[in-house]
Simulated assay, not measured.
Amino acid sequence: MNRFHVHLNVADLSSSVRFYTELFAAEPTVLKADYAKWMLENPRVNFAISNTGQPPGVDHLGIQVDSEADLAILGQQLDAAGGAVIPEEGATCCYAQSNKLWTEDPQGTRWETFHTLGEATTYYANQAGCGDEGVACAPVKPQQSATPTRSKSCDSSTSGCC
Rank of each mutant, 00 (worst) to 15 (best):
Pro139Glu: 12
Ala26Thr: 03
Lys152Trp: 09
Pro139His: 07
Asn9Val: 02
Ala81His: 04
Pro56Gln: 12
Pro28Asp: 05
Asp12Ile: 06
Gln54Tyr: 03
Leu23Trp: 03
Asn126Ile: 02
Val17Phe: 06
Tyr123Glu: 07
Ala146Pro: 00
Val6Trp: 04
Val6Leu: 14
Gly57Cys: 05
Leu40Gln: 07
Lys100Trp: 00
Val17Ser: 09
Arg18Gly: 03
Trp38Tyr: 09
Gly131Trp: 05
Ala33Tyr: 03
Ala48Ile: 03
Leu23Tyr: 12
Ile86Glu: 00
Ala125Pro: 02
Asn42Gly: 11
Lys37Phe: 02
Tyr124Ala: 10
Gln54Glu: 14
Thr21Ala: 09
Thr52Cys: 03
Glu119His: 09
Phe4Asn: 13
Pro43Leu: 01
Thr147Ile: 07
Cys154Val: 00
Thr116Trp: 00
Ser14Met: 09
Gln143Trp: 13
Leu78Ala: 13
Pro87Glu: 12
Glu41Tyr: 03
Thr113Ala: 13
Glu88Ala: 12
Pro87Asn: 12
Glu89Gln: 11
Ala11Val: 00
His5Leu: 08
Thr109Cys: 06
Asn2Arg: 10
Thr109Arg: 09
Val140Gln: 08
Thr122Cys: 09
Asp132Met: 14
Leu8Met: 15
Thr92Met: 04
Ala128Cys: 00
Gly82Phe: 04
Thr116Gln: 15
Gly108Trp: 04
Phe4Asp: 10
Ile73His: 11
Leu31Lys: 15
Val58Thr: 12
Gln107Leu: 10
Glu133Val: 13
Leu31Pro: 04
Val85Cys: 05
Asp155Gly: 12
Cys93Arg: 10
Cys130Leu: 02
Gln76Glu: 14
Phe4Glu: 11
Trp38Glu: 11
Thr116Pro: 00
Met1Trp: 09
Pro106Phe: 00
Val140Met: 10
Glu133Asp: 12
Tyr20Trp: 15
Gln144Leu: 13
Ile49Thr: 08
Ala136Met: 02
Asp79Met: 06
Gln144Trp: 07
Cys137Val: 10
Lys100Gly: 01
Ser50Trp: 01
Ser16Phe: 11
Ala33Gly: 07
Leu74Gly: 08
Leu13Gly: 05
Lys37His: 11
Pro87Thr: 09
Asp12Glu: 15
Ala80Gln: 14
Phe47Lys: 04
Tyr123Pro: 01
Thr158Lys: 11
Asn51Cys: 15
Tyr35Thr: 06
Glu112Arg: 09
Asp66His: 08
Ser156Asp: 10
Cys94Tyr: 13
His5Cys: 05
Tyr95Ala: 04
Gly131Asn: 03
Ile86Arg: 10
Val58Gly: 01
Glu104Asp: 15
Asn42Ser: 15
Gly53Met: 05
Asn46Phe: 02
Gly118His: 04
Thr109Ile: 15
Pro55Val: 05
Thr113Lys: 00
Asn99Trp: 02
Ala120Ser: 15
